[in-house]
Write a protein that binds this DNA or RNA. Structure first.
Length: 490
RNA sequence: GCCCCCAUCGUCUAGAGGCCUAGGACGCCACCCUUUCAAGGUGGAGAUCACCGGUUCGAAUCCGGUUGGGGGCACCA
């Protein structure tokens, strides 16, 4: 089995492209086959090296690797069919176009976009299906001479045979189309650039692709490809069309309605292993009730033929849950390493490792560490700016209750030696202070929490105090007390 | 408009004629735990298997139609 993924570098790596790549990889691995990556960059106007890099980096990040193809953006291609970038294979396409022209399976077309548009409008008005009227199929030498003299350049159209085309789709079963309903489509633009439907067929043949696994949006294109394959005398691969990933409204997932760039998920702090697991289950299931798998385990059980036929909505809540599960499964050291990109360098590795236990149960995404533990590295003034003094007041109590807690805690912490400043000891003493003041523990803690973390929701309070340190804690408590007094005067 | 594909809780799905008074997970609700928030535990609501008609002793599972949804019909990929 030889499968391939052929992304087009006309945009960043899309979540759908990532899943199709994953399914191809899984199918190849499961069958002990070969996975090829080919860059579909014939659209020179829209393709960029930056997008190519984004795609390759994103795939690597997900752990999706290929046996043949460009390994690095701009790097050397690896494999017996190199190059794997279509922009480098132009002579091959030109030669095949020549064969089609010579056999009469294709013909030159001199129509201008305006002429084509006019014909299309006329057909619409007459309620006819919009398709090319074959004007250029029966041109006289004089017509051609006139167009040439005019400076027109010809595109090449494939003369679609009027026949029914059926095939046995790996995921959908028997499907049949009537190519008589198709217009003769352009395979080479008038500037000489070959088009998708044409090059995809040539490359798949030349690269020995045996199974074409792609999105359902290509199902209707398949009869075009089969017609081309027959006209060129190629071997017909098996086709398998996997269901689309959908927006909330069940339309094809798009940038407009969903977050589609893999890089964005990476930046939010989703774990690649969580994303892979999630993507694999969007449209497939091993049929058991286990749901946590590594890439290797997925490859072991994946059956391309067992893929569902219906599209699946991208459920962010489910991804979030899965990501949390994967985060919690990490060791402290592993999690610290993953968190590094979101934590400033001023927090050293030991400091970061100390933060991990405070946040691990609370992280949905790695990036959430900033909101959860930022109070530890942000300046006091910044943290102070996060809250308004009235948030210092506990649920059951007014400003005076806040003042009592703040003052009591300042006295308590001031009396502690640096060596004693550990979570357990801090908790013991503050609880005692609360009892002495006759205030319920929870109400006593709220003002402290806000003063220290700047928020009403935070990691466990006493460990937070310990990590912040006695002096900075005292400074924040004093600041809170001062702000409370000022606001209370109003 | 034409062609094609699809259809089980809100969502992802298990289910390949009797094991289904339809199972799991996410989300939601309640309770427990608890210094907040999470995490964790327990319980709960939630699907007449889109609808109609067949086949069969028996259908979520097979067949046909209807409806609904989606995709494709470019000198984009």
């Amino acid at each position: 089995m030889r499968v391939r993924m052929a992304p087009s570098p006309t945009g960043p790596l899309h979540i759908g492209t990532a899943r199709t790549s994953l399914y191809n990889l899984l199918a190849a691995r499961h069958a002990g086959g070969t996975f090829v990556l080919r860059i579909e960059d014939t659209d020179v106007a829209r393709s960029t090296p930056e997008f190519e890099r984004d795609i390759i980096d994103g795939l690597h990040w997900l752990g999706i690797t290929w046996d043949e193809g460009p390994q690095v953006a701009g790097g050397t291609d690896i494999g017996p069919h190199a190059p794997y970038r279509q922009s480098l294979r132009l002579e091959l396409y030109a030669r095949e176009a020549g064969r089609l022209l010579a056999s009469g399976a294709a013909y030159r077309c001199w129509c201008t976009p305006e002429e084509l548009e006019a014909v299309r409008r006329a057909q619409e008005a007459a309620r006819e299906p919009p398709r090319y009227n074959r004007r250029c199929l029966s041109l006289t030498d004089a017509d051609v001479a006139a167009f040439t003299a005019e400076g027109r350049r010809a595109a090449i159209r494939f003369k679609v045979p009027a026949e029914r085309i059926g095939f046995d789709d790996i995921v959908r079963g028997e499907v049949e189309f009537d190519n008589a309903l198709l217009g003769d489509f352009v395979i080479v633009r008038n500037d000489g650039v070959p088009l998708y439907h044409f090059v995809v067929v040539i490359d798949d043949e030349e690269m020995g692709i045996t199974h074409v696994i792609r999105g359902e949006d290509h199902l209707s294109n398949t009869p075009k490809h089969i017609a081309l394959i027959r006209a060129l005398g190629y071997r017909e691969p098996r086709f398998g069309h996997i269901p689309l990933i959908l927006n909330q409204d069940r339309s094809k997932m798009s940038k407009r309605k969903s977050q589609t760039a893999i890089a964005a998920y990476r930046e939010d702090g989703y774990l690649p292993e969580a994303l892979v697991n999630f993507l694999a289950f969007l449209g497939w299931s091993p049929g058991t009730e286990e749901e946590l798998f590594t890439l290797d385990e997925l490859a072991d059980r994946f059956e391309i033929g067992a893929v569902h036929r219906g599209g699946a909505i991208f459920d962010r809540d489910r991804l979030d849950h899965l990501n949390g599960v994967y985060i919690r499964a990490l060791t402290d050291t592993q999690l610290a390493l993953r968190l590094r990109p979101w934590v400033p360098a001023a927090v050293d590795d030991a400091g970061l490792l100390a933060i991990v236990p405070l946040v691990r149960e609370r992280l949905v995404r790695l990036g959430d560490v900033v909101g959860l533990a930022g109070f530890l590295w942000e300046p006091d003034a910044v943290v102070s700016s996060w809250y308004s003094p009235d948030l210092l007041r506990p649920r059951n109590g007014g400003p005076e209750a806040a003042e009592t807690a703040l003052a009591g805690t300042i006295a308590t912490l001031s009396a502690m030696a640096p060596a004693e400043f550990a979570a357990d000891e801090i908790e013991h003493r503050i609880r005692t202070a609360a009892e002495t003041a006759g205030v319920k523990a929870g109400d006593f803690f709220t003002p402290i929490r806000v003063a220290i973390t700047g928020r009403t929701v935070s990691p466990p309070l006493f460990a937070s105090l310990e990590l912040l340190g006695r002096d900075r804690s005292l400074a924040r408590l004093a600041d809170a007390r001062a702000r409370l007094a000022t606001s209370g005067a109003r």
